Simulated assay, not measured.
Amino acid sequence: MISTMGDAQGKAKGSFITFDSVTFEHTGPWTRMDSEFGYDYWYQPARDVLISSEWGCPTAYFKGFNPKDVESGKYGTHLNVYSWSDQRLLQRIDLGIEGIMPLEIRFLHNPLATQGFVGCALYANVFRFYQKDDGSYAAEKVISIPPKKVEGWTLSEMPGVMTDILISLDDRFLYFSNWAHGDVRQYDISDPEHPKMVGQIFLGGSIVKGGPVKVIHDTELTEQPDPVYVKGKMLEGSPQMIQLSLDGKRLYVTDSLFSPWDKQFYPMVAKNGSVMLQIDVNTETGGLTLNHNFLVDFGKEPDGPALAHEIRYPGGDCSSDIWLPVGYTECHHNNQAKNEVTPPAKI
């Protein structure tokens, strides 16, 4: 199943198309109830739910980022809650102005979990979504990255622009990247309602010393971060997509978001190609350290320079694996799945 963001004319359309996993033959839409916008999704079969997020209208983001497109409603603010068995849209949760561009959405990996997190790009906020006693879902903001007042940038205030989040397989840590500010953060989510930051590292970004942007007010930093070099190469972009090793000890980072936006905000990445980096993770108390011996330079690809984006492990990873509990059975009748769950012996 693949989520959609637009139709053939470039108009926004949040839907899902399905393919045979062996022959790749197109098998039709997953649902007949489309949402206004589309992007990412996660599903919990044992809870009979799929929740999708919203980026925006292709005719807007293909041109690069324009604040006027936000004002005119061309970017989404909703989470869309579907019945997994009935493929039916049940609920739309409006995250409001603070939830513009909800991108990566992650349930906790525990297959019986009824909560998770979504990163909202523009204003760099993380919302926790959760199931209420009546069976419906709600969302609350639990992390907010303050903007920085700047000179020499597109706007007078620079938001974080949170572009990727993920949760470790043991559901202990949440990680995300701020593509404008240039940092990756690690949060302890043992208490999901009150995440606690335990690690942070800057890897380029738009506020590095010596760049065109001057920070004139910052509620978090006392000075702008230094440029970062790996194997003699200065990082010209900013951390964007991330992927965590299964043991939680290695966090991999790439720095290309979307080529029109790369050209707008990090033109040297678009020109010279992107990189992949490795961050060593402290899984005991928290902490992030750059591995200076690891660098994949996609500018040197034979058909490059190339722009690297998603990172995936062939055998499954922290942002694509969805687990079933022990004792879970799924029975189909008239093409409708009915789920029965017994508590897992282990996950």
Score class of each variant (00 low, 15 high):
S144A: 06
D170L: 02
Q44G: 11
T59M: 12
V230C: 08
T31W: 00
Q115T: 11
I2N: 09
P239G: 08
N282W: 00
P227T: 10
I347M: 13
F294L: 12
M5K: 08
L251P: 03
G287C: 04
D297K: 04
V70P: 14
F117K: 01
N291K: 02
S245R: 11
F37N: 01
E151W: 01
P147N: 12
P314F: 15
G96F: 01
E310H: 05
Y123R: 09
D20W: 01
T4P: 09
Q264K: 14
H217F: 15
R92T: 03
D69C: 08
Y229V: 08
R250W: 00
Q336K: 05
M158N: 09
S168M: 03
Q91M: 06
H78N: 13
L221H: 15
G299T: 10
E104Y: 05
S177E: 11
A180Q: 01
M1Y: 04
P343I: 08
F19T: 00
G64C: 04
R92P: 05
D226F: 03
F16D: 05
A138T: 15
G56K: 11
V198F: 13
W55D: 05
K74E: 08
L251E: 03
D171L: 08
I145N: 00
K13M: 06
F265P: 08
K214P: 14
I311H: 01
L112S: 07
N293E: 15
M162L: 07
F24C: 13
I201E: 06
T31I: 03
W179I: 10
T285W: 11
L103P: 10
M276A: 10
F265N: 10
I216Y: 02
F107G: 02
I165F: 05
R185Y: 02
N293P: 10
H332V: 13
W84R: 15
T289I: 11
P111D: 11
W153N: 12
L244M: 01
R88Q: 13
I279Y: 03
Y82S: 12
N110M: 06
L95G: 14
G232R: 07
G232C: 06
N272Q: 12
F62H: 04
A121M: 05
W153G: 04
G160K: 11
I311D: 02
V198I: 01
A46K: 09
L103F: 08
S52I: 00
R312C: 04
V230Q: 01
G38N: 11
G38D: 04
L50R: 07
T219G: 12
G237S: 08
F19L: 10
I2A: 13
A306N: 13
P225T: 14
V161G: 01
E54K: 10
N291G: 03
D86M: 09
E340A: 07
N282T: 07
H78M: 08
E223M: 01
S206R: 00
D20A: 12
K231Q: 07
G64T: 02
N66D: 15
S206H: 07
A124D: 06
